[in-house]
Write a protein that binds this DNA or RNA. Structure first.
Lengths: 233, 233
DNA sequence: CGTAACCTTGATTAAGATCAATTCTCGTGG
DNA sequence: CCACGAGAATTGATCTTAATCAAGGTTACG
């Protein structure tokens, strides 16, 4: 049921059934397999997306083929909302493009497409969704700020250590567990951390040799969280 | 007059005099000299700021003292709005911090402080400001996306060339003029472009030797815009 | 089993940071 | 008006990090 999925999405929480149904009536469901591109940054902007299952990466490619991952989107979350606000207030234009590429990282990745034109009409009459959207944007801005800080002010070792530290922190439970199972491939992790697979591999080995972690494929056990935290600073 | 300044600010455009006055009544004016810090990322969050004169840099410092500039804020613009939306809906907490440092880059930099607590109340009742805020955030997200793309996928030469190209583009007039007068010091420009002054200096010289530009202090003349554009890709 | 995608390891290279030393610029006070 | 000094910018020499290039090894899956 579409409505049930929509209710779980951050920006729609707090809406009543009627409002949810209104949104459900304008959306389209899509399913992708691992490696499928959901959109390219060259395509005209149709609307934003919501993940309901699977995993999505948002990434850019340089002219010579290098890739950098900006976000990993796990359900239930939205992506590609930014172009909704190109010249908000004026007529929506057909010439807007997606700001980056999006690819499914797992088979059976389900997404919901919310068409821009119709959603914009709805948005202008609904202040609740608007506040949710600002909050979501604020969260994303914080993430990008942090991401830039990591990329520009820290070396690869610090970035890798910092990523692992963030992975074991479970903010809701207030507790940490010491084993990580990487959700994404090491190739993708390297592209997210602003490096290449070879360097990531060497860095993980170094952190292992120093006794902070133990690596076994995608499973990483944290042996010394305090030391790792210090290595990330 | 405060109200006149407020009207010029993006997120408040479209508000009527009454609404502007309501905001004017809760703000505080401040003036800073070149080099003065407006806030540090260690300070408790009081509210967001609006520049009305001068120039402000938003930056981060690494543990070993390296600096990276995230944004250069020119009037009339807002900055540090993101923490407004920490857990929006719940009670505003006193423990929030500014997400980065801010410093005035010119003498007589005027800013307006809009206190968080009062503004949040106002925001919940006013959908127009909310939409403006989302739009402003969207613009900033686009900027950060672009910034990350530049930093991670391009070398210093491409970043410098790209910056110059962006400087000569005057979107409103649809025309380009070929002379740039840098608004910020080369030290700051280096920190913004993710490099250091020495490397920036060498890169500008290289671009000059290749015939694309002519550098004379803060004045840079574009001799070959097409070539420079190609060098930025 | 066989093949392709993923990951690791080693040797080499290159971009840009660091270190050190001048030079340039400009505001201030004698 | 000139001299001084501080901050800004440049230049050269060297070093470090991480990318590149090349070759195997592992894993997963049809």
């Amino acid at each position: 049921m579409i409505s049930d999925n929509l209710k779980k999405v951050y920006i729609f929480s707090g809406l009543n059934d009627d409002e949810i149904d209104r949104i459900a009536s304008i959306v389209k469901l899509k399913t992708f397999n691992k490696g499928d591109n959901i959109f390219f940054d060259t395509e005209p902007y149709l609307g934003f997306y919501i993940t309901t299952a699977g995993l999505v990466k948002i990434y850019k490619i340089s002219k010579d083929g290098r890739e950098h991952i900006l976000h990993i989107i796990a359900p239930p979350n939205t992506f590609a909302e930014v172009p909704l606000f190109e010249n908000f207030g004026e007529e929506f234009e057909e010439t807007y493009r997606y700001p980056a590429n999006a690819m499914a990282l797992e088979d059976d990745t389900h997404v919901i497409l919310v068409p821009a034109r119709k959603f914009r009409q709805l948005l202008e009459s609904d202040t609740k969704i608007c506040i949710k959207l600002v909050s979501g944007f604020a969260r994303r801005l914080r993430h990008l700020n942090h991401h830039i800080e990591e990329l520009t002010l820290k070396d690869v070792t610090k970035r890798v250590a910092g990523y692992l530290i963030k992975e074991i922190a479970e903010p809701e439970k207030g507790q940490t567990h010491s084993e990580i199972s990487l959700a994404i491939s090491k190739n993708d992790l390297a592209a997210y951390l602003g490096t290449i697979p070879e360097t990531l591999s060497r860095t993980l080995k170094k952190l292992q040799d120093e006794g902070y972690i133990e690596v076994d494929g995608r499973k990483i056990v944290i042996k010394d969280a305090a030391g790792l935290r210090a290595a990330a600073m």
